[in-house]
Amino acid sequence: MHELSIVEGLLKLVLADRAERGPSDRAVRAVRVAIGELASVEPTQLAHAWQSVASEHGELVVEWCRARQVCATCGEVPERQPGSWLRLCPACGDPLRVEGGDELDLVEIEYANENGALRC
């Protein structure tokens, strides 16, 4: 449900950016966002919500950002399966901390020129 609120926020940023650019550069080709594993946002639902209300503003491209579990001694735990969490470091048994994964960011708006070709 709240994916629509996220799309609303995103659309406001895209419209503001377009307005700043003036009439010649208005076609948006793609909107890239970074969504973290801890952001409580489901990427497929977000894409559907974008498709429903904002598809004329280009394609939504979601970059999924995993949270990292890190041991102070051994570094990042490589074995963690998506969606599962470890209590302790598999190498040394120390507690782990969580880093990253809270992204909910607009990364980039990619514009095409008026006839649809990319402008370099």
Binding site: I6, D25, V33, L104, D105, L106, V107, E108, E110, Y111
Partner: peptide, 15 residues
């Protein structure tokens, strides 16, 4: 390619 790359919080208005 023409891009705007200033990374922003999607929920900037709420923030």
């Amino acid at each position: 390619m023409l891009t705007t790359e200033a990374r922003q919080k999607i929920l900037a208005e709420n923030e």
